[in-house]
């Protein structure tokens, strides 16, 4: 893989190493530890139309080689994000990709409309792991019809803005959903979001998390992510962005070899914030 400019949709990225959505927050919190300017892009945490306070109770639990999180999409909401956080991220020299929540349909359309009016937004990533509030709480990205609806609407309303579809691995056949996404007009596929897991507190005998299930990330999920990227890269023509458990330069090389056009680093920045830059340095010039 080369350290050079490449396109996804209409957007040019300077290299294929991105920060994943969530762990780095709005990106700016990490500017003293990571040279954001040096990265291909910084995907922001998922932004919803209205501010969200996030989940109650325990939000983090370390596992063997992984991390369970139940942050619950806490964020400041679109208005505050575009007024305060987004300009700061641009000022820090980063190339932002804005992660958008795929919640209720009405809210989602308003969110797209607000986003389409932002002159400096070049690319978004749709977080299709958001629960489908209208139909029982399953992630919208598990249903081909809903998936198509969410992506089509984004393409329609966002015009020239590049749209990445971030898929959930908690499905039977992720590559068929990637094909649905491509047909609906997605410019790229990001795979994968966290796997569903849980933990029990032996003292109380009950679940550790108030919402029982939580999202598993980190090295433990890398084989699952790699398999997903490989399968998706076989069946779509649009770029595939690999994410899940990357914690070394070698791990990133495996994703590129499996067909990823770019990689995203999430959980690893918690223990090794220097990793994204080392991956950039490892690429051919």
């Amino acid at each position: 893989m080369k350290n050079k400019n490449f396109y996804i949709g209409n957007t040019i990225f300077k290299n294929p190493v991105f920060l994943a959505s969530g762990p780095a927050g709005y990106g700016i919190e990490y500017r003293d530890l990571i040279n954001l300017e040096k990265l291909g892009a910084v995907v922001t945490k998922t932004i919803s139309l209205m501010p969200k306070e996030g989940n109650s109770g325990t939000r983090l639990q370390e596992t063997e080689a992984g991390l369970l999180n139940s942050v619950g999409l806490e964020n400041v909401g679109a208005r505050c994000f575009f007024e305060e956080k987004f300009p700061e991220l641009l000022n820090a020299g980063a190339k932002p990709v804005v992660s958008l929540a795929c919640e209720g349909k009405e809210e989602y359309i308003s969110l797209l409309e607000i986003t389409s009016k932002q002159k400096k937004v070049e690319a978004v990533e749709l977080n299709l792991s958001c629960p489908n509030v209208e139909e029982g709480g399953m992630a919208v990205g598990t249903d081909p019809e809903l998936l198509r609806w969410y992506i089509t609407k984004a393409k329609l309303i966002l015009g020239n803005i590049t749209v990445l579809a971030k898929l959930t691995p908690n499905v039977e056949n992720i590559s068929s959903l990637a094909v649905v996404s491509e047909r609906a007009g997605a410019d790229g596929i990001t795979a994968i979001n966290t796997l569903l897991g849980m933990d029990i507190n032996l003292k109380s005998g009950g679940p550790v998390f108030d919402r029982v299930v939580a999202g598993l990330s980190g090295p433990a999920i890398m084989p699952v992510a790699l398999r997903a990227v490989w399968e998706i890269a076989q069946v779509v023509r649009i770029p595939v962005i690999g994410v899940g458990g990357i914690s070394s330069v070698e791990d990133s090389a495996k994703f590129f070899a499996a067909g990823a056009a770019a990689v995203q680093i999430g959980t690893a920045i918690f223990y090794d914030p220097g990793l994204p830059e080392r991956i950039v340095d490892s690429l051919e010039v």
């Binding site: 927050g25 919190e29 003293d32 939000r59 983090l60 639990q61 999180n69």
Partner: peptide, 15 residues
Amino acid sequence: VMACGVGACRGCVVP
């Protein structure tokens, strides 16, 4: 319990 330590991940919040 903390992950990022820098206010980014929202994992260590207090109400």
